[in-house]
Design a protein around this nucleic acid. Structure first.
Lengths: 147, 147
DNA sequence: TATTGTTATACTCTATAACTATA
DNA sequence: TATAGTTATAGAGTATAACAATA
């Protein structure tokens, strides 16, 4: 197969390319696993933060997930329309909306998370459990670079 | 800042989320660095494979970069229009087009690669050189999962 | 003045299907 | 029948600017 021949080129030494390809593999598997729950990668991420009880504002979600605030509006509109999350007024700052999960939102998230983690394992076989912790630590340094 | 508080949630244990965020950080820095060369992440990747002398067909590029064949058409059209690559007939299979770099394409790639690697370093500070080799190895297993 | 959420818009990327020419 | 490249189209994701309410 051609892939093997091309794998030894200069691109395979670039973080950017490897991250893009690994993300593509992961996202394809993730979207497929999340579809039965009516979610995609982005809406799953929003629901995950909210179901965690973090009570984030939309702005905090945008910063954390690296999505534009206007994208958060659309995602929260969708999730709210399906009664999975609610917008609450922030008592301290009346401009801000705090997003919380409904009981149904927590149930959907718990089921979706099972599917997502299973998909992660099948999408990345040969990725041993003992590697996982160090891999997560490494990816955190790439995902949250220190200024 | 809110980011620190949210960083301890369940999402930060998921490969998919960390890959998506790391890729977002990397891509933003990469696109900015490549813009002066008239390239973006995807066209840079195509040019990189071709400038390597790999002589891939468009189908091989699609598989390797995980882009749809129709996307390769558009990217090669763009690069060919700017005289950075050429389409060649494959003598063995007249359906296939082999993509090769022009001398100008090799020059543009060499300059772009300098910018891309520099951007990689600034986008991911605290990512020590001694870590890099093992990180690359790890990301390869995520980017090219064994079937 | 600056920030939060919102609306609007344009552009890029992704996914699919169909067509042609070759195998 | 199947594959390589191409065209077309729709949907998802990204980026920017402007606005009202509030700080």
């Amino acid at each position: 197969m051609a892939e093997e021949r091309l794998q030894h080129g200069t691109l395979s030494d670039e973080l950017g390319f490897l991250l893009a390809r690994a993300n593509s593999v992961s996202l394809a598997a993730g979207n497929e696993a999340l579809a039965p729950h009516g979610l995609r990668g982005r809406s799953y991420s929003v629901l995950a933060v909210v179901a965690d009880g973090a009570r984030p504002t939309q702005r905090e979600l945008a910063d954390f997930l690296r999505l534009d605030p206007s994208q958060i509006v659309a995602i929260v509109d969708d999730l709210e329309g399906r009664r999975l999350v609610q917008r609450r007024q922030d008592a301290a700052d009346r401009r801000a909306r705090i997003i919380v999960a409904t009981a149904e939102g927590e149930r959907v998230f718990a089921a979706a998370r099972e599917s997502a983690l299973a998909a992660e394992r099948t999408a990345h076989p040969g990725f041993a459990d003992e590697d996982r912790a160090s891999a997560i630590a490494l990816l955190r340094t790439l995902a949250f670079p220190e200024p």
